[in-house]
Nucleic acid binder design. Structure first.
Lengths: 234, 234
DNA sequence: GACGATCACACCCCCAGGGGTGTGGTCGCG
DNA sequence: CGCGACCACACCCCTGGGGGTGTGATCGTC
């Protein structure tokens, strides 16, 4: 469908100014982890962060949407991610990259779907290619797995466990978490059980408090309120 | 058992220095409410607050233990409330004052059990009498009901509803809340149902977050940790 | 006197939550 | 190559949580 990028390949983009990239995720530590990962490439990609509540200094060329704890799946509303007067190109940055879902997102207007398993140089190349007009779907190459940071990682939670606990800390039910993460409710329950063992709680209320204490809450300013427009799950 | 104080009665305590009173409750707004109620009587009672994490300037003569969200019932460990080199006299300040429970507390070493329904002048009189050596059990007189402040009052929660939500926000189960408040689990469930309607949540996780957002958490410094000695429920 | 609010509690019922156990796949490491 | 971790999911089972409805008492307000 879309030719995958071979490892080490670098697109030849003849431009002097870096691509303006907005990182889009409600968890500060996720955004910080991505920013740290991209910092060595600041001559090629410059980060402008949205959703901080303050107006952005300049609009983004590309939005990099990290799916951690965010709506994902076939109902994801791509157009709401395209912000600014010049509608930014949207890259879905996800762990579980399945072909049919990626195709749906591309049909809906995403410019690219990239796996979190990509090394940073490949990610930067891909951002530049998207900026230049290409459409990409890049699964993680075998053998390379530079994982980012996520909340709860230092407490021994895997990324999926942390994501599930983060959504519990947001007050979601198992069914809502399954919808948000595009997993089955049985998978969600499995992650819940193993996460509870790791963080040493035995009830959902205690998990909520653990999440609050360990920064697993999305930014309060990003909480959907009655007046706040956000992309909505059906 | 103990002669109740008539409304308006004032004990004749011939002393010039005020009674040093420690207010004892883990919720700041409860302690603030009590302090405000007693502020006009500062020539008679001087407040020294314990459990703030800082060493107190001087030891208390009397500890006023507000039962909101705290262990209450026949297993309450009175001796752990008596702090300082000169063991302070303990007053249990509770809403539901039943005679047999009050008798148990007095047997266990409490100097007095006072109802929260008492007017401030009567409360101050009682504190002075306790300091002077008397033992009291004072139910609320009919017709007078100067309620203090409690968390959630401005959101329309009654004191018992607020207490139950505060304990949910601490991660307790219904059974644990029933034990802590000395109520039946059916009463706890009734308060939960009515509180959920008032605060607009429909799950326990959301109630925990509501409590966190509205200051219904006990002071974190007062949370029992592995090294921190506190009175323990069996 | 009637009514509403609060406190206290009982009883019935349904289901979400979470425990256990199991399967299968991929991948990194010793 | 074997093992453990992680991801994904299924199935069974029990219980706590919470919805509904009801009772009774006290108290303040109209």
């Amino acid at each position: 469908m879309f030719p995958p990028l071979a490892s080490g390949y670098r697109v030849d983009v003849t431009t002097d100014t870096p691509v303006l990239v907005a990182l889009r995720n409600d968890y500060e530590i996720v955004v910080e982890g991505l920013a740290q990962m991209l910092a060595p490439f600041s001559e090629r990609v410059a980060l402008v962060e949205l959703d901080s509540g303050a107006p952005v200094a300049r609009p983004a060329d590309v939005v990099l949407y990290d799916t951690f704890g965010q709506p994902q799946g076939e109902h994801l509303d791509i157009s709401s991610l395209q912000v600014g007067p010049a509608r930014a190109k949207v890259i879905i940055y996800t762990w579980a990259l399945e072909a049919t879902l990626a195709a749906t997102w591309i049909d809906r207007g995403a410019a690219a779907c990239l796996s979190k398993g990509l090394p940073a140089p490949v990610l930067v190349d891909a951002i530049e290619r998207v900026h230049a007009g290409e459409r990409l779907v890049l699964p993680a190459p075998a053998g390379e797995n530079p994982r980012g940071r996520w909340p709860g990682r230092s407490e021994g939670l895997s990324e999926r466990e942390a994501e599930v606990v983060a959504l519990i800390a947001e007050g979601l039910s198992n069914e809502a978490i399954a919808g948000r993460t595009h997993l089955s409710i049985n998978s969600v329950k499995s992650y819940i059980r193993s996460a509870y063992r790791k963080i040493g709680v035995d009830s959902r209320s205690q998990a909520v408090l653990w999440g609050v204490d360990h920064g697993l809450l999305a930014k309060r300013s990003r909480r959907p309120g009655p007046d706040e427009e956000r992309f909505v799950l059906p």
